[in-house]
Amino acid sequence: ETEYTFDDKREADRAAKEAQNNGLRVHVTKDGNRWKVRID
């Protein structure tokens, strides 16, 4: 399990989409004014 934090939602969405394309499970959550992408 890996977690990334992004300031920009577009960057978070791009990272999530890339991980999904690689067959990974992805969870995107909002943390204040930042975005967390957790990859299982």
Rank of each mutant, 00 (worst) to 15 (best):
Thr2Met: 13
Asn22Pro: 01
Val37Glu: 01
Asp13Leu: 15
Glu18Ser: 08
Ile39Ala: 03
Asn22Thr: 07
Ala12Glu: 00
Arg38Met: 12
Lys36Val: 15
Glu3Met: 09
Arg34Gln: 13
Gly23Phe: 03
Ala12Val: 03
Thr29Ser: 11
Phe6Ala: 01
Arg25Thr: 11
Thr29Gln: 10
Thr29Met: 12
Gln20Leu: 13
Lys17Phe: 11
Ala12Lys: 00
Lys30Thr: 07
Lys36Met: 08
Val37Gly: 01
Ala19His: 08
Lys36Tyr: 09
Lys30His: 09
Val37Ala: 00
Lys36Glu: 04
Phe6Trp: 02
Asp8Glu: 07
His27Pro: 00
Trp35Val: 01
Val28Arg: 02
Thr29Trp: 15
Arg34Met: 09
His27Trp: 13
Asp7Leu: 11
Thr29Leu: 11
Val28Tyr: 03
Asp40Trp: 15
Lys30Trp: 14
Thr29Cys: 09
Val37Tyr: 00
Phe6Val: 03
Gln20Ile: 14
Val26Arg: 00
Ala16Trp: 04
Asn21Trp: 08
Asp7Tyr: 12
Ala19Val: 03
Lys9Gly: 04
Thr29Ala: 07
Asp31Val: 13
Asp13Glu: 12
Gly32Phe: 02
Ala15Trp: 15
Arg10Cys: 10
Asp40Thr: 14
Ala16Ser: 05
Asp31Arg: 04
Ile39Cys: 10
Arg38His: 13
Glu18Trp: 14
Lys9Ile: 08
His27Val: 14
Glu11Phe: 05
Phe6Arg: 00
Asp40Asn: 10
Glu18Met: 10
Asp13Asn: 06
Asn22Val: 08
Asp40Lys: 08
Tyr4Asp: 03
Lys30Asp: 03
Glu11Asn: 06
Ala16Glu: 04
Gly32Thr: 02
Glu3Ser: 09
Glu18Gly: 05
Leu24Met: 10
Val37Pro: 01
Asp7Val: 09
Glu18Gln: 10
Arg14Pro: 02
Lys36Thr: 10
Ala16Phe: 05
Asp13Ala: 08
Leu24His: 12
Asn21Ser: 12
Lys30Val: 06
Phe6Cys: 04
Val26Glu: 00
Trp35Lys: 00
Arg34Trp: 07
Asn33Trp: 05
Asn21Phe: 08
Asn21Asp: 13
Glu3Lys: 04
Thr5Asn: 06
Lys30Met: 09
Lys36Arg: 11
Ile39Thr: 05
Lys30Ile: 06
Trp35Gly: 00
Arg38Phe: 13
Asp31Met: 07
Glu11Gln: 10
Val28Met: 08
Arg34Asp: 05
Tyr4Asn: 04
Leu24Phe: 15
Leu24Ala: 06
Glu3Thr: 12
Arg10Met: 12
Asn21Glu: 13
Asp40Tyr: 15
Thr2Trp: 15
Asn22Ile: 10
Glu3Trp: 14
His27Leu: 10
Tyr4Glu: 04
Lys17Cys: 10
Asn21Met: 14
Arg14Thr: 07
Lys9Trp: 15
Glu18Thr: 09
Arg14Cys: 09
Asp40Gln: 13
Asn33Tyr: 05
Ala15His: 08
Asn21Pro: 01
Asp7Ser: 10
Leu24Asp: 03
Lys30Leu: 08
Gly23Cys: 08
Asp7Ile: 09
Val26Gly: 03
Glu11Gly: 06
Lys36Asp: 02
Glu11Lys: 07
Ala12Asn: 00
Asn33Met: 06
Leu24Asn: 06
Ala19Cys: 07
Gly32Pro: 00
Lys9Ser: 05
Asp8Ile: 05
Val26Asn: 01
Phe6Ser: 01
Gly23Ser: 03
Gly32Asp: 05
Asp31Glu: 13
Arg14Met: 10
Asp31Tyr: 06
Val37His: 00
Asn22Gly: 06
Glu11Pro: 02
Gly32Leu: 03
Ala16Gly: 03
Ala12Ser: 02
Asp8Lys: 06
Asp7His: 10
Thr2Ile: 14
Ala15Asp: 01
Val37Ile: 07
Phe6Glu: 01
Glu3Asn: 06
Thr29Ile: 14
Arg25Gly: 05
Ala15Asn: 03
Asp40Met: 13
Arg10His: 12
Ile39Asp: 02
Arg38Pro: 01
Val26Ser: 05
His27Gln: 12
Lys30Asn: 07
Trp35Arg: 00
Thr5Glu: 09
Ala19Glu: 02
Thr5Tyr: 15
Lys36Leu: 13
Ala15Gly: 01
Phe6Tyr: 09
